[in-house]
Design a protein around this nucleic acid. Structure first.
Lengths: 230, 230
DNA sequence: TCGTTTTGTAACCTGATTGAAACAATTGGG
DNA sequence: CCCAATTGTTTCAATCAGGTTACAAAACGA
């Protein structure tokens, strides 16, 4: 699932620039020319990160940041400021609360993307990196290796993520749509039926007999379930 | 074990800011609003690093630093000053006692974290100094020499750091961004793809057949992994 | 300083991965 | 037993990620 970024910026040239480069880097971007609509929208669909220009019509960036920090459902979302004059930095950094970085204008596109990524990396919860063993199957996310019955098996990134997800949620049934939401990076344009294809590919790699799966079972009318083989 | 940082700062806004970002960067932070309680507490649980505001009630930063340097159990712990005026900096670093860096206010979170990390890196030396041997490859960081199949091989500084990093984290997959974070000095905004180029250069130096790497493997969709060749 | 080395980027190329589509097989209800 | 719904399987084009090379800029050394 792509990280989504809310950008509050009144200058259309700048916001176009920001959108273009962030989207190019794989983010979903939502633009707000004024600060007014931001809070309601944020509470409906929590963004992954905010980029706020300090000076915008309506609520300005500082005020927005304050509100974000005081709203419990949003308080932990990182905020990056766009500042025109470096002098403004004093106020932000000295007195204001919890901005996670600021980018002085003018900025290079690369710097923008790098800073956004750096902040996100700091906040990204480390996903389960511990190795996992289920019957004859060993999954090591840190090394991205899969071993089946002692044999090392190669997988593609998507296969690996899907298998890892199943293996860490033993016995639970997932619909195709749920899997797309949690495993696929960008769920937007993927057909649920593609999951079938990946299930097939995984079965070929882990099942002794792919036609009679012992691990990755079909649950007719619902989806798939991974279980420890008997 | 997380590095622990003692922060002496009376302004609550600033100390909150500092704590937030250092904790976000994976440090344990302990705040002292005045200089008084610092010394006793430091001797009980030695912090990894001090951050001292020069002007604080009670003992001020300079006085504290002097005492730290005179206390044998603490003398080797790095100290970073927070200064308001840049003019103060010279005195601190040049004439006064053993401060290891200073951060002028106002500072950006990024800068704060970067400097703390930089100082810690300078002090953590023993970690990465022991020679290392993996299969036919010998890496000696102290001498910055590389020997492959008995042949001495020259490397550039960046190549060496990257190889050393890989070799000390055998079997783990690193994304390009992670590698840029941990291997590349100062936070220049380097394109992730540059990592590819260095991987190529290293392969040419250590792999018998660079087209079929036995050590430095590509993990498609994830990054690279160094493994002991079979 | 000037020449050399190192560093990082851009461009192009190639092959692996991805996901949709088409068709086949299976299941379960009536 | 038949039908409709659901899932399985295979194929294939487009896309994407990584490899490679060449080169400009920066850093370095003499």
């Amino acid at each position: 699932m792509k990280p989504s970024i809310f950008v509050v910026e009144d200058d259309p040239d700048i916001s176009r620039l920001v959108r273009h480069h962030l989207e190019g880097a794989g983010f979903t971007v939502k633009l707000f020319p004024t600060g007014n609509a931001v809070m309601p929208e944020s509470e409906r669909q929590r963004p992954t990160l905010f980029i706020l220009d300090i000076m915008v019509p309506g609520k300005d960036g500082l005020e927005l940041c304050r509100q974000i920090r005081q709203t419990s459902s949003l308080a932990s979302i990182p905020v990056i400021f766009l500042t025109a004059k470096s002098g403004e930095a004093d106020r932000i950094l000295g007195l204001e609360l919890g901005a996670d970085d600021y980018i002085p204008k003018p900025f290079s596109p690369r710097e923008l993307v790098a800073r956004v990524k750096a902040v996100l990396r700091r906040f990204e919860r480390p996903l389960s990196q511990s190795p996992l063993r289920i019957g004859e199957i060993e999954i090591d996310p840190a090394a991205m290796t899969l071993t089946v019955r002692g044999q090392s098996v190669t997988t593609t990134a998507t296969e690996f993520r899907l298998l890892d997800y199943f293996a860490r949620h033993l016995g639970r049934v997932f619909t195709r749509d749920q899997l797309l939401d949690s495993v696929w990076r960008d769920t937007a344009y993927v057909t649920p039926r593609s999951v079938d294809v990946y299930v097939r590919r995984i079965r070929e790699k882990i099942e002794p007999d792919p036609e009679n799966p012992r691990y990755l079972k079909t649950v007719r009318g619902a989806g798939y379930r991974f279980e420890a083989a008997k």
